[in-house]
């Protein structure tokens, strides 16, 4: 009896401790994320916070039919479709490069990683100096054009591209995105490359497999969970690019840089809860589908090496 009570006490004590340690985080997450998320779900289906009439999917129809939302979505997808593959491939490229014999390897790693620790706001000035219509990129391009004669790129002839205010407007942002994110991806790939069993690579080497074959058939297979993770991470980060766009071009950017967060900001300013709620749910669903699909693809591709 005594032992049973002691045991009960102990179990109770553990529950108490478990709850106590978790409580600050759990309560906070509940109050600031999970409960209001249900409120968001509720708002998405009513006509106004005052009337509170159930309107089925009308809010979703309104958001999806909204021209600004469509444009913002298109631009965000365009950006991600361009930036994410580059972030994955170049990140892997840098990791493979640093895996080779090279002088000053750890310094190089530091250099590649350092941009992630530079606040975007600090780098905005230089980005403008580089990509402005009269900026360093155009200047260099025209110097190359003039000295080689391969193509013509003349300021007087009006050939200089205004990078932030033309159909190319996403390129400087992609460049900034890659500059800031490649280091992180590279570190993840370096760790994964390190984890490939050495003996497997040695056997492949003895069997006379070429480096390209080894890379494709062995390394890529072992890297597939990391590729998945880096892809998800890059997709998430590519949605955050509003920051860069806002700091470079303000709250009313050139057409192609009008992103989903710009749309959301306008809705916040108008206090249009119904659109906000519906848009947030649509995006949550989209993110869920993207991540789910990536998981399925990776599972299908990498199943033969995972235990």
């Amino acid at each position: 009896m005594k032992a049973a009570v002691a045991k009960l006490n102990q179990r109770l004590g553990e529950k108490l401790y478990s709850g106590a340690f978790l409580a600050p985080s759990f309560i906070g997450v509940m109050i600031f994320f999970i409960i209001p998320f249900f409120v968001v779900g509720y708002y998405a289906f009513i006509d106004s916070p005052i009337g509170q009439n159930f309107v089925f999917f009308r809010n979703f129809e309104r958001v999806l039919g909204n021209l600004a939302f469509q444009t913002a979505t298109r631009h965000t997808i365009m950006f991600s479709a361009l930036a994410v593959p580059l972030a994955v491939v170049l990140g892997l490229g840098l990791a493979v490069l640093l895996e080779q014999k090279l002088p000053l390897k750890s310094q190089l790693r530091t250099f590649f990683l350092s941009p992630m620790m530079v606040p975007v706001a600090s780098i905005v000035l230089i980005w403008e100096v580089l990509f402005h219509q009269n900026g360093a990129i155009n200047d260099t391009l025209s110097n190359i054009a003039a000295s080689t004669g391969w193509f013509s790129y003349d300021r007087m002839a009006g050939q200089w591209v205004d990078w932030f205010y033309s159909q190319w407007a996403q390129l400087p942002i992609v460049a900034l995105f890659l500059w800031r994110n490649l280091g992180y991806n590279m570190i993840l790939f370096m760790a994964a490359l390190n984890n490939i069993p050495r003996d497997l690579l040695e056997v492949a080497d003895l069997e006379g497999a070429g480096p390209w074959y080894v890379f494709r058939k062995i390394k890529l297979r072992f890297l597939s969970p990391t590729i998945l993770f880096v892809t998800i991470l890059s997709v998430i980060n590519s949605f955050k690019v509003f920051r860069e766009v806002y700091l470079l071009t303000g709250s009313h950017p050139y057409g192609r840089l009008y992103m989903l967060q710009h749309y959301m900001n306008n809705m916040f300013q108008n206090l249009d809860y119904q659109s906000l709620a519906a848009a947030a749910l649509i995006m949550a669903l989209a993110v869920g589908i993207i991540i789910g699909t990536l998981f399925v693809v990776e599972h299908w591709y990498g199943k033969d090496i995972e235990g």
Binding site: I31, F32, V39, L260, A280
Partner: peptide, 24 residues
């Protein structure tokens, strides 16, 4: 289950999480 929902929350972009934050 709770840990899994933390991961989901972590993966959600600002555009999604700022709305509940704002409402609260």
């Amino acid at each position: 289950v709770l840990f899994f929902s933390y991961i989901i929350l972590m993966l959600m972009p600002f555009q999604v999480t700022l709305v509940p934050n704002f409402i609260v």
